[in-house]
């Protein structure tokens, strides 16, 4: 085991003029993690990844990969591979030649892994076609192949499933899961909650350039408390029973949908069920409704409701970086 974590960001900040794209971000990705870097478009995910790859210089703070600073030398990236935004290749060269080119820039050993990498991403049959004729999904897969020939310990992927059809997304997730099972640490940025929920054990949620949560996905769910769904023979009576009851909070009812509330613990639910029976409201359904990542995500990223300000920030960032954030 390496002593240094695959990724350690400390106070990482990037400003473009008066716009702060990444704001004092600190996080750690541990060996073996599949780490989800989650946030809405323009939250600063790609800019953070670019700093981790040494493509962008931080305004303040530092990004370390396996303890090394990618700003100082590409040697820091010896065990790192991946791509930011869509992977890009030379359209006038075929897939195989593009891989030979990047392999040559990695050293002779990488060349020996090209066929295997093409096989993994199922592009062997199209390797002699010019990349200019590739679909978006094929370029994504070629990007993965280009990463794999480095035999990295850390894979950094920026929105890996973006632009893929459902089959392509499924295949991409299966590939990431397989690489993780083989011991590779993966950090992926995404705004696709299902993708993160399916693949990741730890997440950081970023909003307007700032981390609003970092930790285990399960812990994040636990912070939401136990949400319960309730249907009875008389919901009006049930609502009266629920009101001001110890251990019960956030009671909501929207139209004909079941009543929802949060319970502090299981004892509170037990007492509630007895009280409902005593009041004559027969219980048809009393079931836990686990908070989805989507619920938590929106809770964390839409708290201030300042959508117009966020949109303005995105527009300004786009102008300053030529479309990238």
């Amino acid at each position: 085991m390496s002593e240094q974590p695959p990724v350690a960001l400390r106070g990482l900040t990037k400003q473009y003029g008066h716009i702060t794209a990444v704001d004092d971000v600190s996080l750690t990705v541990n060996e073996g993690d599949v780490f989800g870097y989650l946030g809405p478009n323009g939250a600063g995910k790609t800019t953070s990844l670019r700093m981790m790859l040494g493509l962008i210089t931080p305004t303040a703070g530092e990004a370390r990969v396996f303890g090394h600073d990618p700003q100082k030398s590409v040697d820091a990236l010896a065990d790192v591979a991946g791509f930011v935004e869509a992977p890009r290749f030379y359209p006038y060269l075929d897939g195989m030649t593009n891989l030979r080119l990047v392999a040559a820039l990695d050293g002779n050993e990488a060349k020996t892994r090209i066929d295997e990498a093409l096989d993994v991403v199922e592009l062997t049959g199209r390797a002699s076609d010019k990349v200019g004729g590739y679909s978006h999904g094929m370029r994504q897969r070629l990007g993965i192949a280009a990463a794999l020939i480095r035999r990295p310990k850390l894979l950094l992927l920026d929105e890996p499933a973006t632009g893929l059809d459902p089959g392509g997304m499924r295949d991409m997730r299966a590939l990431i899961a397989r690489l993780s099972a083989e011991g590779m640490t993966v950090m992926l940025s995404s705004h696709l909650l299902a993708e993160v929920e399916e693949l990741c054990n730890r997440v950081a949620i970023v909003r307007s350039g700032r981390i609003v949560y970092e930790g285990e996905l399960d812990e994040l769910r636990a912070t939401a408390g136990l949400t319960i769904r309730l249907r009875t023979s008389d919901d009006e009576v049930a609502l009266r029973v629920l009101s001001d009851r110890r251990g019960i909070s956030d009671v909501t009812r929207r139209g004909a949908a079941p009543i929802q509330f949060r319970a502090a613990d299981e004892a509170a639910i037990g007492e509630l069920s007895r009280a409902l029976a005593d009041s004559g409201a027969l219980i048809f359904e009393l079931a836990p409704s686990a908070a989805t990542l989507e619920d938590l995500f929106f809770e964390l990223t839409e708290g201030e409701g300042d959508a117009q300000a966020e949109e303005k920030r995105l527009d300004e960032l786009s102008d300053l970086t030529g479309g990238e954030q």
Binding site: V74, D75, L77, V84, A86, P87, L101, V102, L105
Partner: peptide, 15 residues
């Protein structure tokens, strides 16, 4: 124009 600078600058050669 091709967006390939990031492709070659994240390999094992210095800028």
């Amino acid at each position: 124009n091709n967006g390939t600078l990031k492709t070659i600058l994240t390999r094992s050669v210095e800028r």
